[in-house]
Write a protein that binds this DNA or RNA. Sequence first.
DNA 1: AGGTTTAATTCAATCGAATGAATGAATCAA
DNA 2: TTGATTCATTCATTCGATTGAATTAAACCT
Lengths: 238, 238
Amino acid sequence: MKKQTTKNAEKETRQRLMDAGLRLFGLHGVGATSTRALALEAGVNLSAIPYHFGGKEGLYRAVLEHTIGVKLAEVGPGLDRVLAACANPSAGRGELLAAMRTLVRTMVTVMLGSPESRSFSQIMMQEQIAPTGAFNIFHDGFFAKVHGVWTQLLGRLLGLPPESLELRLRALAVMGQMVIFRVGMSGILRVVGGEKLSDAHLECITRLCIQQVEAIVAGYEPACPELGAMSGLLEGAQ
Amino acid sequence: MKKQTTKNAEKETRQRLMDAGLRLFGLHGVGATSTRALALEAGVNLSAIPYHFGGKEGLYRAVLEHTIGVKLAEVGPGLDRVLAACANPSAGRGELLAAMRTLVRTMVTVMLGSPESRSFSQIMMQEQIAPTGAFNIFHDGFFAKVHGVWTQLLGRLLGLPPESLELRLRALAVMGQMVIFRVGMSGILRVVGGEKLSDAHLECITRLCIQQVEAIVAGYEPACPELGAMSGLLEGAQ
DNA sequence: AGGTTTAATTCAATCGAATGAATGAATCAA
DNA sequence: TTGATTCATTCATTCGATTGAATTAAACCT
């Protein structure tokens, strides 16, 4: 018994701290989370934080990098599949739309499905609100990737060049349809009722987002023609 | 000179503290914002916080209530106009679509236009992440109102009953197209380039959101038919 | 109007509590 | 025994709030 407990604590101290960090950092942010609260939540001695991670900030960075790795492994294959479809010049509208459907499904599942994705999204939002030094990890490792895939996919479907400003903004708006269910979760649960979204809710959200994106693609008309060649507004166009 | 300074400080101490609070609470949250930072930012003595607001939390509530009042005054008229159109049984598709366009324009302007709206949205996001006792103020006073208007409007345009679960979720998804530009601002600025969205960007976002909502309305097909009568999933249907 | 009192507000100094980190002893597996 | 890890204790700092004196504008009185 003692050995088990000890063994667990030893090998898993880092992991327990990172779990606690993911939860508490997501809930209250780095600044408002105390090392003592972290140690208590993890069931670990306070000094384990400076010892294993060099301090609270170090734990935060470790949590970020680890969680981003996990999430990227979840979405990565889906993203690659979509990218492959986009890169294939002979891919028809049907295949591109199929790729879109899997992309929506992947996003909804990853963002809303697992419970730890809640904390992940919370930390991501905190970084969007007040970017810390770790913002780049999120942006380059996640946000930009997903946005890039949507941009390529919609570019093919709408016939817009990948550098188009309107295309990039449209990709964001389309993503927003899914993201809002994560961002506004607290409020949404009050509107919909209940303490968490049921599987039926998730399935409905998925289908309805797919259907709306299909409608957007079908009914597309240029909205900002005068900005057509306005990729000049893009600085880091790449 | 001295009198002016003095006079300003006297009459405006509360206001200055609330301005500072809006900015700092939005940036770092209540827990991570120190009274000293607030006093410094406001150019005011530290004791003014307990004196005028009873403490940091009191200042937070005051900031919330005041700012919500201001924002509601900005959107209120626009919302009412849309509600009036929805309530008018003889309103045709054209009038409803016109109402939709002003609703999109209002949301984009209020959320992305003014600089203090940034802090407001940031605080709103903080409350969505970790609702405090003040969450109700936001939800009932803002979120639920805007969502209700979108629900009514889309209900008319799509021919769905106001209690429909799919309708409510669709209203959220549609709102998400605009909300994401506020929520993901930090990341968006990296994607688009620059330090803030220009007027040209805002106009493009507005038009493109309008066009996409038009497409969604035009291309609507029920996505969750089996949930058609599933307002049973709604607890507080009202 | 001029001088005095009064209540409200601001201020510097200070409080106890909580913070993040460091320390060295204690514990453990190897 | 050795090196790694955990632990209780301690440190300097910062936190939110309080205190009582100082300052101010306004009300009052003659």
